[in-house]
């Protein structure tokens, strides 16, 4: 996949942003030097990009993340090196933004610099199997709330429709109509569909572009 300097992932909480962000950072690090992942999730202290810290180190990916993430301190806070995301233009960054509009407020702080530089994708991660985004209309509603909160308009849609471990190929294929409808209503491209590794081979000739996900954040 081709990346702009900043790849911003937003969506309803539980839509799969963190898993996609981690995988995209791996993908990006295979293509370029000087890659970072920024975990700006101030909403959910349970599943964080930081959980994959060791794998980032092994790939030379810089982790920009609150000092308090995964530390048992229930404190929504921003990382001290937040501004390096927009200041250091030699760096390519995947941004993992917290869920819903409440999570997107954190991104608002970088709005002016991101828009001024204009080298970003702002992607809405959608999952039709999540309870509050079962159809295009409700998904668009969440999208608008996020845009309103962070002040950055979306540039594309990522279809991450899944039922966790129970997902089969038909679930993913069946979700395409929904994802295309979201894209059409939003007047944006459907940039990607994402699937777990085990479904990738079965679907790679049927869906394009298809992005392979190695699951990272999973509870016991």
């Amino acid at each position: 996949m081709h990346y702009k300097r900043l790849t911003i992932l937003c969506g309803h909480y539980g839509s799969g942003k963190t898993n996609i962000a981690v995988n995209m950072a791996f993908d990006l690090a295979a293509q370029r030097e000087n890659v970072a992942i920024a975990d700006l999730d101030i909403v959910n202290p349970y599943f964080r990009s930081k959980d994959s810290e060791d794998e980032f180190k092994a790939r030379g990916i810089r982790l920009i993340c609150s000092d308090f993430a995964s530390s048992n301190v229930d404190l929504p806070s921003m990382p001290a090196d937040l501004y390096s995301i927009t200041d250091d233009k030699s760096m390519s960054v995947v941004l993992d933004i917290g869920g819903d509009d409440r999570g997107a407020y954190a991104l608002g702080r970088l709005r002016d610099a991101i828009k001024a530089e204009n080298d970003y994708e702002m992607l809405m991660v959608v999952n039709k199997f999540r309870p509050l985004t079962p159809d295009a209309e409700s998904t668009i509603e969440v999208m608008r709330e996020i845009e309103w909160a962070c002040g950055i308009p979306f540039t594309g849609i990522i279809n991450n429709s899944n039922l966790a471990g129970e997902t089969d190929a038909d679930d993913v294929l069946g979700s395409l109509t929904y994802a295309e409808e979201v894209a059409k209503l939003a007047n944006l491209p459907l940039v990607l569909t994402t699937v777990e590794e085990k479904l990738y081979d079965e679907l790679k000739d049927k869906i394009s572009p298809l992005f392979r996900l190695k699951l990272q954040a999973r509870p016991v």
Partner: peptide, 14 residues
């Protein structure tokens, strides 16, 4: 149809 829910959401929906 099944939906993908957090335990917390399932409590609220139920």
């Amino acid at each position: 149809d099944k939906i993908l829910m957090k335990g917390n959401e399932a409590i609220a929906a139920a």
